[in-house]
Design a protein around this nucleic acid. Structure first.
Lengths: 207, 207
DNA sequence: CACCCGCTCACTCTTTCGAGGGAGCCTCCA
DNA sequence: TGGAGGCTCCCTCGAAAGAGTGAGCGGGTG
C-alpha cells in the first residue's frame, strides 16, 4: 500500500480540474496522473495512464459520464470510478450505481470529505454523498420509466401531441395514450406537463 | 495600477473555489482576498474585505447570484461583478447584464481566457463568453415573459389546471387562458408542456 | 394627448387529454 | 409453467386546453 493512488480527472471545467489537482496533490498518498475534458478523451487516457481511480463528471461535452464509465469498466474492471457532479436526481444515481460506480460525490462536498471518500473508495468501500443518499432513500422503490416511455415523454416535452408522436413512432394514438397513462401513474403526475417536470427533476431525462 | 486586483470568489463548490484561487494567484497582478459559499456570505465579505472584483456563481444555496450582485452593487457601486457559471439561457444572461454585471463567463473557459477576461473587465471593458454571446444573439429580440406570466407558467409546470391556477390567484379561468395564450405565443410553443421546456432551457424559470 | 402593454374577463367552438374499462403478444425470470 | 412487466391496440366519455375574437382598465412613454 505504499504506491500512491493514481487518479484521472474527467471534467470539462478547467477551473475545477485545477481545484481537484490542488486538493488531491496535497495528500501524500494520492497522485493526479492526468485530466480529460471529454468522455472519449478519458477512455484514451485510461489506456495510456493506467490510473487506479477515475473522478468523473456526469455531464460531458461528448458522451455522458455514465457511458464513459461503462466503457472504462468494461476494459479495465479493476479501475474504480467515482462520479463527482453538482447534483442529480435519483434516476441518474441509480443508473450510475447499477453501472458499477464505486462512489457518487457532490461538488459541494468539503475538500476533506472528498479526499477521505477517495481513500475509502480506493480501499474498497462504496461512498455515496449523504445528500444524494437522502434523495435516493426518498425515491426508494419509486418506479422508473421504460425506454419507450422516456422516448415518448421526450416528444411530449417538445410539444408534440399524442397523434403526432404516434405517427413518428408508427404507432396507434391509443398506444401513446396507454403509455402516457403509465407514465403519469409511475411519476405520480397529474398531467403531461408535470410529468416532464418530475422526470427532469429526477434526472430521468434532460431538456 | 501597481495595486493587485482584489478578488472575492463566490461559489458553493469548494473544489472550484480552490481552482480559481490556484489559477488567479498565479498571476502577479491578482490576489484572492476571500471566498464565500453563499450569497449572504458574499455580501458580508464584501463589507469586510473590500474587493475590487467579485467572481460570482449564479446558483447559490441561499439567494441567487444575480440578487447577491444587485445587493453588492447597490452598496459598493465601484465593485465589478463577474458572473462565472456553467451555463444559462438568454433570460438569465439578460437579467444579469441589465443588473450591472461587468462580465459573464462560463466555467468551461480555459484558464488563460478567464484571467485575461478578469484583467480586461478590471480595466473597464465588458466581457461576455463567446458561447453565451452567440446564444444571446440567437434569442435577440425574443420576447420575455412578464412576472405574472412566469408565475402562471410555474404553476403549469406543477401540473395545475387553468381552473386551479385561477382559483389560487383569485382570477377568472378565462384570464389564465388569456395569459397562457400570450405565453405560448411569446415562447413560440405549441402547448403548455413545450412552453415549460422552453422556459427552462432559456433560463426564464427553474424546475 | 394618444398609444402600447400588461392584466383582466367573456363567449364560442374544435381538438386533445386523461380516466375508465379491456385485451393480446412478447420476453424474461422464478 | 406461471407470472410480471413491457408494448401494442381498442372503445367510451367528460373535462381540459387552445384557437378565434373582442373588450375594458390602468400605467408608463413618446
Amino acid at each position: 500500500m505504499n504506491q500512491p493512488i493514481r487518479i484521472l480527472i474527467v471534467d470539462d471545467h478547467p477551473l475545477l480540474q485545477e481545484g481537484i489537482v490542488m486538493v488531491v496533490e496535497h495528500e501524500p498518498d494520492m497522485q493526479v496522473v492526468g485530466s480529460a475534458a471529454t468522455g472519449r478523451e478519458s477512455i484514451a487516457l485510461c489506456e495510456r495512464l493506467q490510473p487506479n481511480l477515475v473522478l468523473m463528471d456526469l455531464r460531458l461535452p461528448d458522451i455522458s459520464g455514465i457511458d464513459a464509465m461503462i466503457a472504462i469498466r468494461a476494459k479495465w474492471p479493476t479501475v474504480k470510478v467515482i462520479l463527482l457532479t453538482t447534483f442529480a436526481g435519483d434516476a441518474e444515481v441509480n443508473r450510475a450505481l447499477k453501472a458499477g460506480a464505486a462512489g457518487y460525490l457532490l461538488k459541494t462536498m468539503p475538500r476533506k470529505q472528498i479526499v477521505e471518500s477517495i481513500r475509502q473508495i480506493h480501499a474498497g468501500r462504496r461512498r455515496i454523498d449523504p445528500g444524494v443518499a437522502a434523495n435516493l432513500a426518498e425515491h426508494m422503490g419509486l418506479e422508473t420509466l421504460s425506454q419507450r416511455e422516456v422516448e415518448i415523454l421526450k416528444q411530449v416535452a417538445e410539444g408534440n401531441r399524442n397523434k403526432e408522436i404516434a405517427h413518428q413512432f408508427a404507432l396507434s394514438e391509443e398506444t401513446i395514450k396507454s403509455h402516457m397513462k403509465n407514465i403519469l401513474e409511475k411519476l405520480g403526475a397529474s398531467d403531461r406537463t408535470q410529468a416532464v417536470s418530475i422526470a427532469v427533476r429526477r434526472g430521468i431525462m434532460q431538456l
